[in-house]
Design a protein around this nucleic acid. Sequence first.
DNA 1: ACAGAGTGAG
Length: 518
Amino acid sequence: MRREGIRPVSFTFSALFKACAGLANVELGRQIHAQTFLIGGYECDLYVGNTLIDMYVKCGFFESGRCVFDEMPERDVISWTSLIVAYAKSGDMEAAAELFNGLPEKDMVAWTAMITGYAQNAKPREALKLFESMRDAGVSTDEVTLVGGISACALLGAGKHAKWIRDLAEKDGLSPSTNVVVGSAMIDMYSKCGSVGEAYQIFKSMKEKNVYSYSAMIVGFAIHGKANAALELFYEMVETDTKPNRVTFVGALTACSHAGMVQQGRRLFESMKRDYGVTPEVDHYACMVDLLGRAGHLEEALNLAATMPIEPNGGVWGALLGACRIHGNPAIAEVAANHLFDLEPNSIGNYIVLSNIYAVAGMWTDVSRVRKLMREKGLRKNPGCSWMEAEDGIIHEFFAGDMTHPKSKEIKEALEELLQTLKRNGYKPNLSSVVHDIGDGEKERLLKTHSEKLALAFGLLTTIAGTPIRIVKNLRVCEDCHTVMCGASLIMRREIVLRDNMRFHHFHDGVCSCGNFW
DNA sequence: ACAGAGTGAG
């Protein structure tokens, strides 16, 4: 076109930037960006500017997007929304909210960008609050808005919220059975709310299924420990026209890993490239290290991490470290931890796991060495937080050590009574779950303040006898709390469903669905 | 008329 001497119009540039965004090719984008100045005039065009911001944001170059925005002589709601998305993607929701609040005319897409931003940054309550304000403001919502709300409900893991948004979707004519995006989002939501059966009902009802629908369902089975169902669905999927992708394999491999199905996992991994044309990436190697390590093949897992054809990341070494915790192997743990301290020097969890492994092995000098390292780096423990949905749909949050809940006194008493009963039945507090350098009495006191125990006591106090108690936790559940949940399910004759940051634990009659293998 | 929001894993 340029050789022919035909002068491009602004749409020509918009189309080019859109193509660069699709290819995530920022280099090419920058070259064409320079052309807008050379040919002249286009850098002032609103459409060109907006596509440019979008291209930089989609390629992850937020600063460049911001520069374009700042230099635009004229901006509209689309320019502002692109910038809101940029801040949301970089994790700065405060900045995004400031821009949004300053917008004189907020349209549906701007509202939706904020809702989705909160959901993507793990702030479900903010997302749902905004979703309601949007509807109250009389702004119309579409399937994209709804999916933002559905993701927020998935994060919350609360059944009544799930039902509420489902009813809303049906009322708006966006049924999961006819809308593949809504359906896929709801599969994820129901399985993260603990209702994997309901998720499967949705899946079966869907007229159209894509790779998201299958992957969400496979992952749903995996996090509930239903490895056979996950693999059966995988083999059902490959008989259809829907091709599995990298995420599908992460889900299927995770399923094998949680169930200790080493042979199936190995076969699946070997078949990825050969039978399905999906090249294993670093996450798949992490799944394999996890699979081998959990099953006790620690040397082989270490060997895989050390010799894999791509550079291992924190996920790979983290999986190995986790396996060393399960099997109590301080020697290999040290190798994994050293890599992790290089790759993620400020990630507190790795120091805590290593220190726990040393403590269980009675290696107290090493325990204090790791603790000293943590102190020197000024790292603080992430606060543990658990929550549960009450009968009226209100979410009650509990933080470790926090006694500000209005029912704190009753909760403390109920927990004390439960623990006494458990002790009479042979429960001993697992003091090595506490990393701090304090006396045993203090350790036991600290264990009693763990957020999932507070939530459990609250559940025992406020829910109807015989109904399941459902709790969600932000971190991995600790050894001692896991034991207490098992015991409580037997003594109180209650089913307890606990979602931690990795998976679900279904406690029933004193045993957990994870087989104490998590 | 072109341009901004989307579901699955870690």
